[in-house]
Design a protein around this nucleic acid. Structure first.
Lengths: 346, 346
DNA sequence: ACAAAAATTGCACACGTGTTCTTAACTTAA
DNA sequence: TTAAGTTAAGAACACGTGTGCAATTTTTGT
């Protein structure tokens, strides 16, 4: 009985050999069809593509990687999902990697104790490179990758390592812009609210801030440097509670927060717990320009970073280094922009 | 633009053969040493581990995957980084995957046109499974994976597909809680602000909301269903502008927003553009309990989802299905919790 | 029409693993 | 001490792919 058997897709994945048989060609021909720039005649290419389509064949990138000792995976290291800015960086990074057919392997190093195992974790997948997003963690981790000749690119971090491409916002100048803005608004006693851990970008912003104040020439202006124990909204509020719990004439009138989340917490505490009016009693400038900065409840004047640019440049640098590992390290600085809203205009 | 790039795996990657030579054993012995449950004597195991450590040997998971025809990569599909709740889901998902030594391969399907290529993209890495996070996109994409027998788990989505595990918050009951809360606060004219696209979770929340109103028995209570064109803060504000631009006596007094971002936009617009006081003139309930909901500027009463639970259960279900693909589909519903803050208490 | 050049094809090998199967070594029981 | 039983190690194969090389086909030039 010659019953017609329906051409079901076999359980499991169709392999190049399966396609070859169905198309009546050698397995090499299949391989070449899916390798750009290989030598295949138009006729066989079409037969292969037809057979591949019918079988739902997808090339096995894992096997391909093993064979040619190349990987198309890129590690993306992030310090938890709490920092809203870093999260916003993620989307653009992924899309820019996709431009080069690279796939992001995410790694969350919230706990430093995971670090060691996380290191192995990425290495075992033979990542073609690693992107470190801003945050405090692991300079030693990066050093480890370098030792193994894995290309590394960093965003908003210290550019001190050899043969690492770094792309940062102009954090220092952001601090300068913030200082000028606060001073122009008439504030005399200034304060800088830094990030809890000694982050590179936090330090740079504070340095630019202090520097601009010093250069302003007006010695009636004072700067106070503060640093919280926790980050984000709660951290900003905590610093505010500590700072504003003093006689009104000693309170700072101009606040620069290392990022917008801190600023939200600070100004909410100032307004709701201490009854201060913003900007009348106190002017505030943040950093990042998160979406919430534009919210009517805040209207936060802030320094905008070029998220898309940071992601694009970091990926481009990494890709360059992949194809030319001995390329000299580049340190690129992207401009920031002062976005004026209500917290600084009076 | 669509350039293919990959980097040579740097020289200096020790292979199992290298370790074998250095340890003076066969390559099989090395392999067994790193394969839990294999038969190796304590003596050789130690020699192998010593040699491996000296060479900095890391097992090549790509090669391992090719050999045993199974992958340790899991696709995580997210609809852009705009939805803050989905982003918060990401961290727990990654950490729970790590519990099983699985690695997240991220896929951003913001643009539907990427869908087709994204599908191939994950398949080419032979992902062991896929997790769909909440959002509208691609039910067809999921169907495609199922056809290829790739295990699929979904979060906060319709449970209509066969052999797909779904874990959702109790969206319906969340709507019920919101309705009761608004009614208890004395609101009579109610409105529901839905998500722009007909998302499953948005629809469920609205259904529960309407249902609870109907069951309240008080026919003096009316419900209005609204849907914006854009999502997030701006979307909420836009809906508010449209809705409040009518005589005060026709304005709703109780608003239920499908998520917190919408609620932020809505209440900011109501307060700052229309001068309404919250909760005196209007009570509001959101959904998700984002960090900002607790901010002093909002104090938003909202329905909290069990983020950690959603992630954990989704990963557990997926892993179960990996080891037993014919397991009957489970549909799990996690409880939600009403978090009362200032926008509903008067 | 025929030789030379060019293009295409298939075979065989390589990549770094896990695993079966056979053989050697070692342990236990009588 | 010897036979039987247990355990570890190595050789060989498989996984799915890319590619060098030689053989074969097609195209080109006259």
């Amino acid at each position: 009985m010659n019953e017609e058997v329906s051409a079901e897709i076999p359980p499991g994945w169709a392999t190049a050999a399966d396609v070859a048989i169905r198309a009546g060609v050698s397995r090499s021909a299949v391989s070449r069809t899916f390798t750009p720039g290989a030598s295949v005649s138009q006729a066989t290419r079409e037969r292969v593509l037809k057979a591949a389509d019918e079988l739902g064949y997808q090339v096995n990138r894992l096997a391909r990687s093993v064979n040619q000792r190349q990987s198309t995976l890129v590690g993306v290291v992030i310090p938890g999902m709490q920092n809203e800015f870093v999260v916003q960086l993620l989307g653009p990074i992924i899309r820019n990697l996709a431009r080069y057919s690279l796939a992001p392997l995410l790694m969350d190093v919230r706990d430093p104790e995971q670090m060691e195992s996380s290191l192995h974790y990425l290495l075992q997948y033979r990542v073609a490179g690693v992107i470190f997003t801003s945050g405090s963690p692991p300079i030693e981790l990066a050093r480890e990758y370098l030792r193994l000749q894995v290309p590394v690119a960093m965003i908003n971090r210290d550019a001190s390592l050899e043969s690492v491409d770094v792309v940062s916002s102009d954090n220092r100048h952001g601090g300068v812009l913030a200082a000028r803005c606060l001073i122009a608004a008439g504030a005399r006693r200034l304060a800088y609210v830094n990030l809890p851990m000694g982050t590179y970008s936090g330090v740079s912003r504070g340095a630019g801030f202090s520097e601009a104040v010093a250069l302003s020439g007006q010695d009636s202006i004072s700067v106070e440097l503060l640093q919280g124990k926790i980050s984000g909204y709660e951290g900003g509020a905590a610093v505010a509670r500590r700072l504003l719990d003093r006689p009104p004439e000693l309170r700072p009138e101009g606040i620069f927060c290392a990022n917008d989340s801190l600023a939200f917490g600070f100004m909410d505490c100032a307004r709701h717990s201490f009854g201060l009016r913003i900007p009348e009693d106190m002017v505030i400038v943040g950093f990042d320009d998160l979406q919430m900065a534009a919210a009517a409840s805040f209207g936060l004047t802030t320094i905008r970073q070029d998220i898309e640019g940071l992601a694009r440049e970091a990926v481009d640098r990494l890709v360059e280094r992949m194809s030319n590992p001995s390329k000299p390290a580049e340190s690129q600085i992207l401009p920031v922009e002062l976005v004026i809203r209500r917290t600084s205009t009076r």
